[in-house]
Design a protein around this nucleic acid. Structure first.
Length: 353
DNA sequence: TCTCTCACG
DNA sequence: ACGTACGTGAGAGAC
């Protein structure tokens, strides 16, 4: 009923929906969301399968599993954080993983609503860094155009679109912004024209044009990427702004694919890792600040660029600026790029976020 | 126990 | 011609 192997055989052997169907490295047909979405116009069963996958995922992973993990003493779920699992320095969360609670789809949002404050005297508060990884890219690459966008408080994807498509910011269309957003994210991961084309459903030629233009408009970002890869090849590691290293043994591999992975790791790790360093520093600051002010409110969760709190209602207006101050000043970035955080509150996690 | 898929940042 | 965007954890199915 949920077998990717059987599904692949039915879709591609029996029904012949795609003679060039891609296979996984073990020779099975790939039937992931991206594959099924492309096939949706050929046969309507694809959308039914996607719906089925969404529903069973939510039921199996969250609706059925989370209640089983309620602690009988506290009546709540308690995650475990690992500090030395993720290679970039991020935390990871298990039993249950509370860093992947749904938020995107309508049914997923219903699950997030189940996370509520301890009682009627408390509210949930969520504070998250805005575009922290792109700010870090701007700061450590010292790219003038990107630093300027953040310093003047611009919408970064709109600003990027204006540069890449050579129009006034006021004339940036939704589609242009959408594409620019995809390019910005791709940059963080070391994406190429192929990946961008695949992601946006555009031709590789168009994708290459966009990327070339991006590099022209934000020249220091390209320079940062080249220099970081060279540094890794010379030293065997890359490091965050705070100096935490990630060793990359494959960076000099003769194998194109293996080396390519290591090169993308070299680009991404200092960015993701610096963001991880920053929020950890913020958490320590917040811990001390809450203690010094004798707040009764509690810090509950960290989700990479977000912190969630159980806040006593009468402390709310005192607590919020403390959280924001700690987050925004946790680690000062080079080139005067500000770290910005946003905060919200409500009767559940969905509303607060 | 491994593979595939999919939830999140 | 090749492979092609980073980091996680968890559940189901296959073996």
């Amino acid at each position: 009923m949920a077998s990717p192997k059987q599904l692949g055989e039915v879709l591609f052997d029996k029904m012949q929906l795609d003679p060039k169907a891609k296979k996984t490295k073990t020779g099975q047909y790939a039937t992931g969301e991206d594959v099924l979405a492309k096939l949706a116009n050929q046969h309507k069963i694809c959308n039914d399968i996607l719906s089925f996958r969404e529903l069973t995922k939510l039921k199996n992973t969250y609706v059925d599993a989370l209640p089983e993990l309620i602690n009988s003493k506290t009546g709540r779920v308690h995650t475990s954080y690992a500090q030395a699992v993720a290679v970039t320095g991020r935390l990871s969360s298990t039993s249950p993983n509370l860093q992947n609670i749904p938020v995107r789809t309508e049914r997923g949002k219903e699950i997030r609503k189940a996370f509520i404050p301890r009682d009627e005297n408390h509210v949930l508060v969520s504070a998250d860094y805005s575009q922290i990884e792109l700010r870090i890219v701007a700061a450590i690459s010292a790219d003038e155009n990107m630093c300027a966008a953040f310093k003047t408080g611009k919408d970064i994807h709109t600003a990027t679109a204006a540069k890449v498509f050579n129009v006034e910011e006021a004339d940036v269309t939704k589609e242009m912004r959408y594409k620019a957003k995809s390019v910005n994210f791709g940059i963080i991961y070391g994406q190429g024209a192929f990946g961008l084309a695949e992601n946006l459903g555009i031709s590789r030629t168009e994708a290459k044009e966009i990327i070339d233009n991006y590099k022209k408009q934000f020249p220091n970002i390209q320079k940062y990427m080249d220099e970081t890869i060279n540094f890794a090849k010379e030293t065997g590691y890359v490091e965050t702004l705070m100096g935490r290293k990630r060793w990359l043994k494959d960076i000099t591999s003769a194998n194109f694919t293996v080396r390519g992975f290591a090169e993308r790791n070299a680009i991404n790790s200092p960015i993701q890792g610096t963001a991880a360093d920053m929020i950890k520093l913020a958490m320590i600051k917040i811990h001390h600040a809450f203690k010094a002010r004798q707040f009764k409110s509690k810090m509950l969760l960290q989700v990479h660029d977000e912190l969630v709190f159980d806040v006593l209602k009468e402390e709310l207006e005192l607590v919020k600026p403390v959280i924001l101050e700690c987050m925004q000043n946790a680690l000062s970035l080079p080139n005067d790029v500000p770290a910005n955080a946003e905060i919200g509150e409500g009767e559940n996690w969905l509303v607060a976020h």
